[in-house]
């Protein structure tokens, strides 16, 4: 038996850079360096671990929907050890919302063929944390999400989901959609060998017509949500800063009292 894993990875603007909106109120991706969303590295890592621990053949495909530069995210995932990559790119995708993104990803996953989809817990730009649930809904397969521990055996996926009120053990049959958190285990760094090998790995490019998606189902026009205003938050006015010379705790208590916290 063999197992086909598709890992969804997003290319995002660097969070430590100066992120902002373009004139059409979409994310400005031109002025800021982009990278593989750090939280998707955990998804790639878990896919690679499942591959390494399996007796069967496992093939790990990384999939991104994004602009030309999103290839960088795929390269990074390939250099970590993924086998091949799919890049869905189309000018008409500009400004797609979460519902639209999940349509494109689901169609691409079906076209690629899969037994298991692994996503990150959330992107580091949109941070919605909804795409994995949407993929499960669209693909009509179980959702086994927000796992801090995951394993796959005999066509069954199990894992631990640490929620607010309880920690739960989950179980579902494949095919399934999994998402993993940053508690699932440190992601590996690409080795030099990995980086060299990645250059030779196949990257397929698909556009909307390859996926039988009409342009009006996606993009800014096709979106079911609309951003009407985006304003930079005014900088917080400079506060009072004191150096502790033995009275720091007291001074702070006075401040808290003056603000009626005590």
């Amino acid at each position: 038996m063999s197992l086909r894993i598709v890992v969804t990875v997003k290319y995002v603007p660097d969070a430590t850079g100066d992120r902002h909106f373009a004139d059409d109120l979409t994310v400005d991706r031109d002025d800021v360096d982009g990278l593989l969303s750090e939280l998707d590295e955990y998804a790639v890592e878990q896919a690679l671990q499942i591959k390494e621990n399996a007796d069967d053949d496992v093939e790990v495909t990384v999939l991104t929907v994004g602009p030309e530069d999103a290839k960088d995210a795929l390269r990074k995932a390939l250099s970590m050890g993924a086998d091949k990559a799919i890049h869905v790119e189309d000018d008409d995708l500009h400004g797609t919302d979460a519902i639209g993104t999940s349509l494109v990803l689901a169609k691409a996953i079906e076209k690629a063929g899969y037994d298991l989809v692994i996503s990150g817990m959330a992107s580091t730009d949109g941070t919605m944390g909804v795409v994995p649930a949407l993929l499960a809904e669209r693909l009509g397969v179980p959702q086994v999400t927000l796992l801090s521990e995951v394993s796959v055996e005999d066509g069954t996926v199990t894992g631990r989901r640490d929620g607010d009120a309880a920690s739960e053990q989950l179980q579902a049959s494949l095919p399934a959609v999994v998402s993993v958190t940053d508690q699932s285990g440190e992601a590996r760094y690409p080795s030099f060998k990995g980086i060299m090998a990645a250059k030779k790995k196949p990257v397929e490019s698909w556009d909307l017509s390859d996926l039988d998606i009409d342009a009006d189902e996606v993009g800014l026009e096709g979106a079911w949500t609309k951003v009407e205003e985006a304003a930079e938050r005014p900088a917080r006015s400079a506060g009072t800063i004191v150096k502790d010379e033995g009275e720091g705790g007291k001074q702070l208590a006075e401040f808290l009292a003056s603000q009626k916290f005590i």
Binding site: K243, D244, G249, A253, L256
Partner: peptide
């Protein structure tokens, strides 16, 4: 973090925190 604060104390937390707790 000091760029965000309304009030900041530059100091060793092992000195400042117990004093603050005691004051409160």
């Amino acid at each position: 973090i000091f760029d965000l604060v309304d009030y900041g104390v530059v100091g060793d937390l092992f000195e400042v925190v117990p004093q603050l707790t005691e004051q409160i």
